[in-house]
């Protein structure tokens, strides 16, 4: 498997400074969508390092490929087959992971907050949050841990101001409330990295910053690494560092 040269000086300057080994490292990541005969290059060689415990904001115009990049880092999608570059987690290339390892990676290492929440409409708020734990632990494992997991889920939801809504279904919640449920789901398995696609995009300023406070607090306690995609400069300002996607690359 070809790996790009991680020591190219231009690349490292674009990737930005990080202390020690980065948790996530992207090098020359390319993603091209094919629409009929037309190739639409969305990412054209993204280099990015995400350091352990850092809060990184990714900015960029709509359609610039922010969600795409996040999907690639979360192991949901694959970069181009040839010359698509490399994404490594803890130095381990995602491309080299087996299907099983990839499932584990998505499940326990990464917590993903989708731009459009993506909750299961038939499940209650509580079950939506616990779903990720169910997937992680399997039938027996979940049954034996159930009480603890459900307690933790309620705790998270409580912290996000949804303590009274555990038995509600997503359709009964506002967009912002759904977003918070999605964040709780992303955190239930205590992932090392939270990839959040516009986690405050649907929230008013006050609630949005409240959520960010909660996340920051969570980060302080657990050393969680966070990558936030946002349009909002104010959100970006709260992040430790921010990068901007322009024309499919990370602009300095």
């Amino acid at each position: 498997m070809p790996t790009t040269d991680v020591n190219s000086p231009m690349v490292s300057s674009a990737a930005g400074p990080t202390a020690g080994q980065p948790v996530l490292r992207a090098r020359g990541v390319r993603k091209t969508y094919r629409l009929g005969r037309v190739n639409v290059p969305v990412l054209r060689g993204v280099d990015l390092d995400v350091g352990a415990g850092e809060m990184l904001a990714i900015l960029g115009k709509s359609g610039s490929g922010k969600s795409t990049l996040l999907h690639l880092m979360g192991g949901l999608d694959r970069a181009d087959a040839d010359g698509g570059g490399e994404i490594a987690f803890d130095g381990r290339s995602i491309r080299s992971m087996s299907a099983r390892e990839l499932n584990d990676y998505r499940c326990s290492t990464i917590g993903f907050v989708f731009q459009f929440y993506h909750l299961l409409p038939e499940l209650t708020v509580l079950n939506n949050v616990c779903l990720a734990a169910m997937v992680r632990w399997g039938r027996l494992g979940y049954s034996s841990r159930r009480a603890g997991i459900e307690a933790r889920a309620s705790e998270l939801l409580e912290a996000f101001g949804l303590g009274g809504r555990l038995k509600h279904r997503p359709a009964e919640l506002s967009g912002g409330e759904r977003q918070r449920v999605a964040i709780a789901r992303a955190l239930i398995n205590e992932p090392r990295v939270l990839l959040a696609d516009e986690p405050t995009g649907n929230l008013d300023r006050a609630t949005g910053s409240q959520i960010l406070d909660l996340l920051a607090e969570h980060q302080r306690r657990t050393g969680l690494t966070m990558v936030l995609v946002t349009h909002d400069n104010e959100v970006a300002a709260r992040a430790g560092r921010s990068v901007r996607l322009v024309d499919g690359v990370v602009a300095v």
């Binding site: 949901l76 499932n103 584990d104 990676y105 998505r106 299961l120 997937v135 789901r185």
Partner: peptide
Amino acid sequence: TKDVGILRAIGASRLG
């Protein structure tokens, strides 16, 4: 379809 996508995204296997 979306539920399937969500399940896969949060780590459910194909078999699952």
